[in-house]
Amino acid sequence: MFILTTIADLVQIAPEDFTKPSAQALEDNINRKYANKVIQKIGLCICLYDILTVSDGLIGHGTGIVNVNVEFRLVVFRPFKGEILQGKILGSSHLGIRIHMGFYEDIFVPGPVNLFEGSEFDVAEQVWVWKAEGENGTEELYFDTNEVVRFRVEAEVWHDQSPQAPMADDASDEERKTPYSIIASMQQGGLGPTMWW
């Protein structure tokens, strides 16, 4: 679920960071810009992994900022399609189940299409229930909140949040969409709450 992505970027080190060792100043700068941020079509950046090449630092006119061209690799959260991951149920609604992984919580399992056959939403309890046909008749299995579940990554949805020119006819601000979310499924033996299997 984690990958390495190679990026080239211009890092600007401000004079107040000159007291740090150069490598540390570069690392802090890169992490400040990328850690916990989503890059479109790349994934959720976690932190710097290593630095590959560094150019000489150049100081421009007027400021004391040192400009350095750096090539580096980042640890990125980007599960592949079909990957099985483990998370916890965050909550349920009639639309489906939301799952979180602690550092990432935009995982959604639409129900009942991506759940086991025979799953229904219990409105009173606000949970999804799988009515499994077993040897001893129908068994009710609950997708309780906070249950540890395994799920399959089915699709990813990207929303570019970079600002766009306002449209003349639509003055109201559109609701902010999550930049990167995952559509998942739980409809195969071995998936769903881990205690079932």
Binding site: M1, F2, I3, L4, T5, T6, I7, A8, D9, I39, K41, I42, I46, C47, Y49, E71, R73, V75, R78
Partner: peptide
């Protein structure tokens, strides 16, 4: 910012934890 390679390698959870 320029992406040079989207996926240079895949890391296991163990490697990420160690890092």
């Amino acid at each position: 910012m320029k992406i040079l390679e989207t996926q240079s390698a895949v890391l296991t959870n163990y490697e990420v934890q160690a890092h």
